[in-house]
Amino acid sequence: MTRSTVLIIPAYREAERVGAVVRAVFATGLDLDIVVVDDGSPDGTGAAARAAGATVIRHPYNLGYGSALHTGYCHARRHGYRRVLQMDADGQHDATMLPRLLAALDAGADVALGSRYLDSAPPRTSLLRKLGTQLFARIATRWTGVRITDPTSGFQGLSERTLAMVVHDGYPEDYPDTDVLVEIARAGLRIVEVPVQMHERLGGLSMHRGARIAWYGYKMFLTLALLPVRRSSPFRRRDTVARVP
């Protein structure tokens, strides 16, 4: 392992899309390792990603989007990567935007947050989701002290310092966004939003739909309220997964 940058792609039931995403990243010619974390998909997502040339880490059962990211972070930590990029496996994130995230990291950002609302027309979405995004964007802006327009974006770049921070066991299992950003900002790390283009999903199902939106709201408010006083792990060790063997 000589490369210093790893791209983490959490994937669940994306067998038809993940291959194209991986190939699009290779096509950019960027010097990075691609790791697809298959979150226990029953449809051969892992095999498709491997066929496209990515390294595959396969959860034995479905653990949630946040856990898949967390596994990727722990892998990056174990292997000593200096920079982490992350993008979704459903084709919403454009691989040609990755250099923008890298440039922001090179310029000293600890988190480069790809925002679809900064300078291009965002993809269509439901009214409820739009309102929710605005609400949490406001909360994130107030609590981090940085203007944040797209707190739910999974298109990000992280510095080594941020990576060391997010490998703890308490990393959120389902929706890691506003709460993680606030936690990172509280630790004194620098968050920078980067304008990126996003596409509409190529198919499959969004994580943010139906009753899950209510659960998202409840969970996010509870986590944010408890953030200053909450332990990072129920056990004494706070990084059981990332521990280098």
Partner: peptide, 30 residues
């Protein structure tokens, strides 16, 4: 649940490590 999740993650990381050492994927995809 927390232990179960941690175990799943560590298993996944170990299997990846094992595949790297074997130089071939484990047969669990099929």
């Amino acid at each position: 649940t927390h232990r179960h999740k941690t175990m799943g993650q560590r298993l996944a990381l170990l299997e990846e490590e094992l595949e790297r050492l074997r130089g071939a994927p484990l047969p669990h995809d099929a």
